[in-house]
Design a protein around this nucleic acid. Structure first.
Lengths: 169, 169
DNA sequence: TCCATATTGTAAGTATGCTGTCAATCGACG
DNA sequence: CGTCGATTGACAGCATACTTACAATATGGA
């Protein structure tokens, strides 16, 4: 651990957790996009589609809590998914403020077809590690993300969000 | 491991490496910004400043290779750092295309002052884990990022880039 | 020397990811 | 019932992060 009087070196940058997390994220996105380029779908769009499939009729705010994405960002993500006709937005009968989200037939088909590519991408990210190390890394990362949930700008609130949907799965 | 006929569940999203890397990155940025808010400096801007300090007179393209940031993105990062007067751009005497980057007095002072905050931020990211687990996670992540270097859109090319600078530190 | 090729910075365009703010609407409390 | 505070979607603005393209410049080989 460097003291306050140590000069800052590049090594301090390369070994900093924050730098490694950023690099890894960029690598992960790059691999995902490459494997899924035939479908022109980003990781965020994919996660959104899966969520809408799992929770048909969810609204944008609840969706943002379920996948821990920023509410503002999600707005434009939804716009793009709607433009590509993968989802539909319908006004809520009970609440004039919200718009409910549903997969279209086309969106469901895409989700079905893209699975192998997504699984290939997820596998490739950890490929260079030994199988035991992959397990260890995933376990520690899962733990860390969970324990740091509240530090996130948009904490994951899956249960809270779904309470209002009348279902808990 | 889900088969092709399994329905996609939210659990498949939550446990996917890509999702975890994304969440962790967002948490890391959030913690960094919070700890450093007194200095109004982002993680990317910080890494850039450290690199310029370590390699005075580096050009933008080489800088992008040294920290593995996209060349286009780095352009605007440099612009903002210059606007805040933390760095200076001087035309290269030998090559009319390149502009050489130098820390200003103000940039050097900022870098000196911000160290404790940055270290606090880096520590906080791993805080929830047991010390032994922190070591394990960092080691595995370092390995993975290194082995996946070529999968990145902008691979880290520290040595190559610095060869042309006449120094190797 | 001349020319094909490569490099450099820059710009435009798209997509996250965050900060605010705002109007419309809802809900709860008096 | 009416008002106040919270919620919702939308928007503007800033900062990464990537793609392609382009003009200026450099460099190598014929």
């Amino acid at each position: 651990m460097p003291s306050k009087s140590d000069p800052i070196t590049m090594d301090a940058v390369y070994t900093a957790p924050g730098y490694l997390f950023r690099r890894m994220q960029q690598i992960a996105v790059s691999i995902f996009v490459e494997e899924c380029k035939a479908y022109d779908l980003t990781p965020v769009q994919y996660a959104s589609l899966v969520s809408i499939r799992t929770h048909p009729g969810i609204d944008a705010t609840r969706l943002s809590a379920v996948i821990a994405f920023d509410r503002s960002t999600l707005g434009s993500v939804i716009e793009r998914l709607e433009a590509k006709a993968y989802i539909e937005r319908k006004p809520s009968p009970g609440d004039k403020r919200t718009k409910l989200l549903y997969l279209t037939r086309s969106g469901a088909a895409l989700l079905r077809d893209i699975i192998p590519s997504v699984e290939r991408a997820q596998a490739r990210m950890l490929q260079p590690l030994k199988p035991a190390d992959r397990k260890t890394l995933l376990a520690l990362l899962t733990q860390l993300v969970d324990l740091n949930n509240e530090a996130s700008r948009v904490p994951l609130r899956a249960e809270d969000a779904l309470e209002h949907l009348g279902k808990t799965s």
